[in-house]
Nucleic acid binder design. Structure first.
Lengths: 279, 279
DNA sequence: ACCGCCGATACCCGCAAGGTATCGAGCCCC
DNA sequence: GGGGCTCGATACCTTGCGGGTATCGGCGGT
C-alpha cells in the first residue's frame, strides 16, 4: 500500500462520494475510482459499498480509515522530525494547554535549564485537544497532558501529580460564599453556562455555553460574568481580581502527566522527562 | 513520501551500500540512487554521506530510519487489520511468551469466555521479543508482556500483577539446599551458564550460554543440566521433576501487563482487558 | 600508477497514473 | 411510467516517472 492510495481512500471514506473526493484531491473521478478498486483488489476485501447516490463504508473500510489516518500521521511525523533533525539547532518542542499547569511548567523549564547538557526548549501553548495531534504528527516532542481530559493512548508518559478541581466564579456570585460545591450546584446556573470544549474530533457538544478552545478564553468569559468553569486548583495562581475559586468536591481529580511519542529516544527528551518526574 | 521511498531508504540505511541495497530490493542500483536523492531533494535534507566505499547516515538519516520503520509497521498493521475485519469471524489474537504466565493466561481465557458477548480468542505462544513486533504490525490484538523485560512503549497497557523471581536449577545441585540466592551466586556457575536471550533487534549478547527464544527451551536445557535460569515464580507450576526453584532476593520484580495498540477500540478488546484487570 | 569498487549520470523503454468522453444504473420528479 | 439527473464504472488516450543498461568519475589499496 502506498501513501497515495491511503490518501485517496481517506478522501473517499470521509466524503462518501467519489466525485467530491476527487475534487478535494485535485484529480478526476475515474482515476480515483480505479485506484480504490485496485486497492480493494489487492487487499482482496471490499472497502466501500457503491450506491447510485454515493458510497458507504464496509466494516473493513472503517478499520482501514482509522489505520490509514494513523499511517499518514506517522508519515507526517517522519517528515517533520527528519527535517528538524537536520536544520537548525537541536530543540525540544514542548506543547501545553495555554493557561494550564503554568506554575509546573515554569518550574520544569527552570529545572531543566540548569541540567548539564540542556538544549533549547520551545514552548507551544496550544488549545485544548491539539496536543495529541501535535505529538502524533511530530510537531512537538513532548506534551503536558491532563487526565482524564486528555488521553495518553499511544504515548509514553509519566505522572507528575494529581490535584483537585475548583469552580471559578465571578466575585460576588452567591455561590462564592459556600466553602465547597458539588457539580450539581453548577449545572444550569442562570446566566453562567459551562463553556463547551471541543471533542477529540474537533466538533462541539450541543448546549448553551460558549464554544472555547483555551483556558485563557474561559477565564476571560468568567471574569465577564458570562460563564463559569471547573478547573484544576493550580489555576488559582492566575486568577486576577474579580474571580473566586471554590473547591468542587465531586469533580474528578486531575492528573498532570508528561507524555512523549514512543520510539523517540533522544537524550535531551529523556533528561527533560527525568527532570519533570523529580520536581 | 511514498512507502516505496521509505522501503528504499530503509534498505540503503541498513546496508549502507547502494549496490547491496538495490540487490536486496530486487532493482538496479541507478534507480535506487535516483530515488534516494529525489527523497533528499524533496525533504531538503541530506540523509546519507556518500563515500567511495559506501555510505553513512547523517543525523537526519538516523531519525528517518527510525521513523520510516514505524511507518512501515503501521502500514503492515493497517493491511492485516483491514483484511481481518473483512474475512472470517471476529477474533481476538492474544500473544504471550510461551511458558510464561500460563496460569494467569488460563484464568483470563476462562473468565473472558463466560462474558456476555465474548468472541473467539486465538492464543499465539511466541518467542520472547516477538510480541512487540506482532502487536505493532497488527498480527496480534493484545499481548501479555513482562516488565522490565518487555517494553510497553507505544502501547496502552494495564498492570495485572507483580511477582518475585526464582532461580530454576537441576535437582541435586548444591545451590538447591540454600533457602534463597543472590544474582551473584548464579554468575559463572561451572557448567550452568545463563542462557542468552535475543535483544530487541534480534541479535544476541556475547557470552557462554546457549541462545534461546522461549522459556520452554530454557526449561528443557535446565532439566538437561545445561543451563540455569531466573524466572518469575509463577513458573513453579510448570516445573516437572528434576527441577527446583530457589528464590532470588535481588532479582528485579516482574510485572505482568496486558498491552494493546492504541487506536484499537473494539468492544471485544475492551471487554478482555476489563476481565484481565478484574482477575 | 594502475586496477577495482562504488555511487552518479546519461539515455532509453514501458507501464501505470491521470485525463476526457461515455456508459449504465438507480432515484426523483413531473 | 418515462425522462432527466446524479453518480460510479468503463473505455481509451497521453504522459510522466520508475526502472533498466551503459558508462563515467572519484577514491583506495596494492
Amino acid at each position: 500500500m502506498e501513501t497515495r492510495e491511503l490518501r485517496y481512500f481517506i478522501a473517499v471514506a470521509e466524503e462518501l462520494h467519489f466525485g467530491r473526493a476527487a475534487q478535494r484531491l485535485g484529480i478526476a473521478q475515474p482515476p480515483l475510482s480505479r485506484a480504490i478498486s485496485q486497492l480493494e483488489r489487492r487487499l482482496g476485501v471490499p472497502l466501500l459499498e457503491r450506491t447510485s447516490r454515493g458510497a458507504t463504508l464496509t466494516d473493513a473500510g472503517s478499520v482501514l480509515l482509522r489505520e490509514a489516518r494513523a499511517v499518514l500521521d506517522a508519515v507526517a511525523a517522519a517528515e517533520r522530525r527528519t527535517v528538524r533533525a537536520a536544520t537548525g539547532t537541536p530543540t525540544l518542542v514542548l506543547v501545553a494547554k495555554a493557561g494550564a499547569s503554568s506554575e509546573l511548567l515554569a518550574k520544569l523549564l527552570d529545572a531543566y535549564a540548569v541540567e548539564p547538557d540542556a538544549i533549547t526548549v520551545d514552548v507551544i501553548l496550544s488549545g485544548v485537544a491539539e496536543q495529541e495531534r501535535m505529538l502524533r504528527e511530530g510537531q512537538a516532542d513532548v506534551a503536558l497532558l491532563h487526565l482524564p481530559f486528555d488521553s495518553t493512548a499511544g504515548f509514553d508518559s509519566e505522572d507528575l501529580g494529581t490535584e483537585d478541581q475548583v469552580a471559578i466564579l465571578p466575585a460576588g456570585h452567591p455561590l462564592t460564599g459556600r466553602p465547597h460545591l458539588l457539580m450539581a450546584d453548577l449545572a444550569d446556573l442562570p446566566g453562567l453556562p459551562m463553556p463547551r470544549w471541543p471533542r477529540r474530533d474537533g466538533t462541539y457538544p450541543d448546549g448553551a455555553g460558549p464554544q472555547v478552545t483555551t483556558h485563557t478564553q474561559v477565564l476571560q468569559l468568567v471574569s465577564l460574568g458570562r460563564a463559569c468553569m471547573v478547573a484544576p486548583e493550580s489555576c488559582r495562581t492566575q486568577l486576577h481580581e474579580g474571580l473566586v475559586a471554590v473547591p468542587v468536591l465531586d469533580a474528578p481529580r486531575v492528573t498532570t502527566v508528561i507524555a512523549w511519542p514512543p520510539h523517540s529516544r533522544s537524550r535531551a527528551l529523556a533528561a527533560l522527562v527525568r527532570t519533570a518526574t523529580r520536581l
